[in-house]
Design a protein around this nucleic acid. Structure first.
Lengths: 97, 97
DNA sequence: TACCAATATTCTTATATCCATATATTTAGA
DNA sequence: TCTAAATATATGGATATAAGAATATTGGTA
């Protein structure tokens, strides 16, 4: 029986790990799931996670640079939301786990 | 409308990122998916990926230490297989993508 | 036991990540 | 325009990760 060559699957491993890597940090994972449930602003993240503001901002930036989040300004606040479909699928798995 | 506290979800973020992190490397991702399609031994990985044997072994060790893989010895060879259910779900997503 | 193939480990260097402190930027409102 | 609140960026030190070369181990077989 001939095996299916993995290359024929046409998977872009670089791209996928560019999504997975930012998600694979406990703080970022908690932050991103918290966006749905407990508010999407930096300050709200900061309050529930108990981390310095700059640390929160930096984690959000990693997620934004990866194309996972985008920020929407409302006055002085920025509300972050998940925009990457694959990331959404992962988050779904995590929540069901 | 009262928001659901994220803590009530009881998600173990540390544990999840301990699975996600090892998966979030392009070589390891390719390796682990190749296990299904193109052989599960170190040598087979090595041949299809074109990396030094020690590099392959080290990546497999990371995955094994995380509890994602286990190795089954057959004589002089070791056949690796995925044993973590969450990892299997991720792999499933990746293949369907 | 001696040897070979397959796999694992050690060691080393280079690079990346994490996270806190301090500082800058942006926006709204007086 | 001055100020305060929210967010972003710069910097630096500690730690972690990546990967290849060299070496060690394990298992089968003569």
């Amino acid at each position: 029986m001939a095996k299916l060559d993995i290359k024929s699957l046409g998977i872009d491993f670089e791209h996928i790990s560019n999504i997975l890597k930012p998600l694979s940090h406990p703080h970022r994972l908690e932050m991103i799931i918290g966006l749905f449930h407990n508010g999407c602003t930096v300050t709200q993240c900061q309050e529930r996670m108990g981390l310095p503001q700059s640390t929160i901002s930096q984690h959000l930036r990693v997620l934004k640079d990866a194309g996972i989040l985008k920020g929407r300004r409302k006055g002085t606040e920025v509300c972050y939301e998940v925009i990457d479909p694959f990331a959404l699928q992962i988050i779904d798995l995590v929540e069901k786990k």
